[in-house]
Amino acid sequence: MQTLMFREAAEAASVVAKQFSDTAGEVSALAAKLKAMKPRAVITLARGSSDNAATFAKYLIETRLGILTSSAAPSISSVYSAKADLKETVLIATSQSGKSPDIVTALQAAKEAGAFTIALVNVIDSPLAQSADIALPLCAGPEKSVAATKSYLATVAGIARLVAAWSEDHALATALDGLPDLLAKAWGLDWSAAVEKLLPAKNLYVIGRGVGFGGAQEAALKFKETCAIHAEAFSSAEVRHGPMALAKDGFPALVLSQNDETRAGMLELMEALSQSGAEILLSGFADPRATVLPSLEAHPVLQPILFLQSFYRLAEALSRAKGLNPDSPPLLNKVTETL
């Protein structure tokens, strides 16, 4: 019997196709508005998987638009009730449910402080969506498994679509047209070789960089949630500062490498990991020192999205192999309402 996580992750291709079709006009109009606004900064607002998608947004906005992008700390407004001057800024809130009180409060506070607020949200009649100046639906449909999958992929796809239009990146926009088909292919890739390698693992690193770092954060979160593995995400640069001391004697490291300017650093890291004796799992390119997990050729911005689609199938299989239920991780709820 298939788990909810398996079925929902498998829907990502159709979800993204529906989102692109249903929201094309809204995205185009919003991109035109943002171009006219010329904001001095962008603020992201999110928790959990949605915050990992916000990391993707930061790298994409800063590299494609050159606009400083920073993550908001919700407690600044929800707990400390501190005020800020956010005139000429854009706040992008990402959420599946749109119900967490601290995220709603932070968006409302940002709006009062002068920010133009956008919500990318799956529940379009949620408090977050109703509070924002503009709400873009993720179109993911009901997601019942505690572990977010299709809603994460819908969020990063929506972010990429908006930034492509905003920055007038025609190559990225054209590549995004093929994303639904690529997601369907990525779901069919066989990452089962990693299940046997990771079955005894209690700790591991997930390594990415640049636009791929948010995906590494998301994979690490899913390892914790669904597989009861203490996983930490690092960039290929940051892992060399301290954390590398643990990456020896079979310590597992999942390396996700899109084919862009970050590849040279990943190749250097592969040498260091190999010399230290780490157990390397690799997707993005081939290397004889690693267990290579298959990947697709695609625009570098799309590759981290495709990695996660294949990864979700791995995480679901690993969870079941460990005798766990990926749909109902202990001590977690689908909607986490923090203050």
Rank of each mutant, 00 (worst) to 15 (best):
L179I: 11
A233W: 05
I305V: 15
Q130D: 06
A31T: 08
A82R: 14
V335M: 14
L324Q: 01
C139D: 00
A73W: 04
A9K: 00
A233S: 01
S319N: 03
I92M: 15
S276C: 08
A290S: 11
P330C: 10
S97F: 06
P200H: 12
G188V: 04
A321D: 02
A24H: 13
I61F: 01
H299Y: 13
R47C: 11
Y152E: 06
Q96A: 04
L302G: 05
I61A: 06
G284S: 08
R161Q: 15
T226L: 14
A84I: 12
R320P: 00
E88K: 14
L199C: 06
L86T: 04
H299S: 11
M5D: 01
V156E: 03
L128G: 02
T23V: 07
E261I: 09
A216L: 11
H170L: 15
G250W: 12
L60E: 08
H241P: 03
A147T: 09
T55M: 14
A9L: 12
G98C: 01
F251K: 03
S283D: 02
C139N: 10
L136I: 13
T336W: 08
P243T: 12
E316K: 09
K58C: 12
A10D: 08
A148E: 07
S235E: 01
A24T: 13
E232C: 10
P243Y: 14
G48R: 13
T3W: 02
E297I: 11
F213M: 03
S49N: 06
E316R: 10
S50R: 10
S21R: 15
S100L: 04
A164S: 13
A193L: 00
A157C: 11
Y312K: 03
A12G: 02
G277L: 08
L308M: 15
Y59I: 00
R313C: 12
A321M: 02
S257P: 01
N333I: 00
A106Q: 10
P326W: 09
F56M: 03
H241N: 10
A160C: 07
A315M: 12
L293G: 04
L86N: 01
W166T: 01
L182G: 02
A57Q: 07
G250Q: 13
A148K: 02
G214A: 11
S49F: 08
Y152F: 15
S28M: 11
P294G: 02
A160V: 03
K111S: 14
E316M: 11
R40D: 13
F223A: 06
E218S: 12
L107Q: 07
L332G: 05
L302A: 10
S295Q: 02
S295E: 08
E279H: 13
S283R: 12
T69E: 00
A119Y: 07
A317V: 02
A228V: 06
T155I: 07
D287G: 08
S14Q: 14
A194P: 08
L308T: 00
F307V: 03
I207G: 12
S100T: 14
R7E: 10
K33D: 10
S310E: 03
I305L: 14
Q258N: 15
L34E: 05
A298W: 05
